[in-house]
Write a protein that binds this DNA or RNA. Structure first.
Length: 500
RNA sequence: GGCCCUAUCGUCUAGCGGUCUAGGACGUGGCCCUUUCAAGGCCAAAACACGGGUUCGAGUCCCGUUAGGGUCACCA
């Protein structure tokens, strides 16, 4: 289904730090939309605020997007027909068009100093007036202007917003939105340092880069009338706008932000940056699926789907206009789903990193054998460390004797149990040291010892793994091997004996 | 406070006038399985904010109220 106008969307973050989780969702939606319509997705860097510029941010940003599997057709790293894709390298363009607006009476130079503006705001506050620029320099006489110029004053270029009438836009998500022009501000388009503000830069770039659809967070909705008027002032064809619902804190109070860190139901801090999720062991597949499900719905009552499937049916008509709270439990659940569904070899590959980061030397053969018994037990990749890290520990860390002793047992009965198990296990050939054989050999001991499976297996499990919460007993023994299993059981016997 | 947006289970959502005694998912509770922890299976509790209209008929359309959110910079 060929579209009449080629779809071109963009993600235009400002490089002020690592990518915000909400930013990733915005990127994802733009990307999904472009891919669905067989169009292009562009990455553009909006570094027009010199005060907030972070030189490492671009790299981090790219890293996060790549991690999530978002790819772009044009961007600062790969160039493209409308390069450069970094706004600080396009300054002359913005200045040129700002001048054009001034020359055509659509904008004007404003010479107030920061202090003067501060004064004005204070006055407004005292008089309990609505804050905003008073348009003092909107109609300066040529003489006044010349005087300020002669003074050598710096100036900003402000947009001359229409003073009456209304601005109505049909937003793809929000529907028809109408604003009174009279309450709008004469916003700054070009700052005194020669850099453009977002308002000016995005309109010029979206025009020049032939962007067809602007999908951005609903936080931008209040400045939409300004943008619409800017498009009209330039006489350019406006792209479609789609304002995405804002992602709110898990409790629904306020949007997710770095200041004011969100918390989950138990009071744990919820990370806001994509890198935090990367480091916490979340899978990009799960993260993408999760984020795509907030504010958009796959349909058919399906919640688990790949990005390839999402691309097939992604469109703006299923985007919800209502804001939504960030559901952290759902992310954990989804991540678990993806871990369980993953091929063992692939999962092993991904488990390696967190294991090594925890200081373990990873034996790949062992890891491959461990994967099947951990995959249903972990929610994040990092969970493997606490659940199965012991398989890779250089020297075994035995559990405390109290932990080896099971419910309704004492040191004496535990020692008796461990010794009985050692006797049985010692008689099994190394080649037969596999789960089922071990189970069949050991289980009958419950009869002779008069204890339950739970007591028997529990004692052995804690003795052999060193953990009260761990992978299952016999599976773990098989991986650990006969010699080491026996050694650990004897060590545990000694440990508990000391309690007699 | 002004302006704008939104309003279905605790949460993410389905629902686009009759098929809604409102569906799915997460979470929660219970049961089963069980060797810890999970996973898995089964079951349960849980919502159309309120008030007016429109209509034969409203969760679905309109208005108001209330509530929540966003935004009011030479930041994006």
């Amino acid at each position: 289904m060929p579209d009449s106008i080629p779809v071109r969307t963009r993600f235009a973050p400002s490089p002020t730090g690592s990518l915000h989780i909400g930013g990733l969702r915005t990127a994802l939606f733009n990307w999904l939309f472009a891919r669905h319509h067989h169009g292009q997705f562009i990455l553009r860097i909006e570094d027009t605020d010199q005060k907030r510029y972070d030189p490492n941010a671009l790299q981090t940003l790219i890293e996060a997007l790549r991690w999530a599997g978002v790819d772009w057709d044009e961007g600062p790293d790969i160039g493209g027909p409308f390069a450069p894709y970094v706004q600080s390298e396009r300054l002359d363009l913005y200045q040129q068009w700002a001048n054009w607006l001034v020359e055509h009476g659509k904008a004007y130079r404003s010479y107030e100093t920061a202090e003067e503006l501060e004064q004005m705001r204070k006055g407004q506050e005292q008089r309990k007036e609505q804050p905003g620029y008073n348009r003092a320099h909107r109609s300066l006489t040529p003489e006044q202007r010349a005087a300020y110029e002669a003074e050598g004053r710096a100036y900003v270029v402000r947009f001359a917003m229409p003073l009456e009438g209304q601005t109505t836009v049909r937003d793809l998500v929000q529907g028809e939105v109408t604003f009174d022009n009279a309450v709008q501000q004469d916003m700054v388009l070009l700052k005194s340092d020669g850099f453009p503000t977002y308002h000016l830069a995005h309109v010029i770039d979206d025009h020049l880069m032939e962007i067809s659809h602007v999908m951005r967070a609903a936080e931008w909705l209040p400045s939409l009338p300004l943008h619409v008027q800017l498009w009209q002032a330039f006489g350019w064809k406006m792209p479609e706008y789609a304002h995405l619902p804002v992602m709110l804190n898990p409790n629904g109070k306020g949007k997710m932000s770095k200041r004011n860190p969100p918390k989950d139901a138990r009071g744990n801090v919820i990370p806001v940056l994509v890198h935090d999720y990367m480091n916490a062991g979340y899978l990009p597949e799960a993260m993408d699926n999760f984020l795509t499900n907030i504010g958009w719905n796959f349909g058919d009552e399906r919640e688990v789907f790949s990005m390839a499937e999402a691309i097939e049916r992604f469109d703006t008509d299923r985007i919800n206009a209502a804001n939504s709270a960030f559901p952290p439990e759902k992310l954990d659940w989804l991540n678990g789903v993806y871990i369980r569904d993953m091929d063992d070899v692939e999962l092993a590959r991904r488990l390696r990193q967190p294991l090594e980061a925890a200081g373990f030397e990873v034996n790949v053969d062992t890891l491959l054998r461990v994967v099947p018994i951990v995959k249903t037990r972990i929610k994040t990749l990092n969970d493997v460390v606490s659940m199965a890290g012991f398989f890779f520990r250089e020297t075994f860390l035995p559990a405390a004797p109290e932990q080896i002793i099971q419910k309704k047992m004492d040191a004496a009965s535990t020692v008796q149990t461990l010794q009985a198990a050692v006797a049985v296990l010692a008689g099994i050939d190394e080649a037969d040291f596999v789960t089922q054989t071990l189970y069949d050999a050991v289980q009958p001991l419950t009869e002779t010892l008069g204890i339950s499976n739970g007591q028997l297996f529990g004692a052995l499990r804690v003795a052999v793994t060193g953990q009260t919460v761990s992978t299952p007993t016999f599976e773990s023994m098989e991986i650990i091997g006969k010699d080491e299993t026996l050694r650990r059981l004897k060590q545990a016997t000694a440990l508990v004996s000391a309690k007699l």
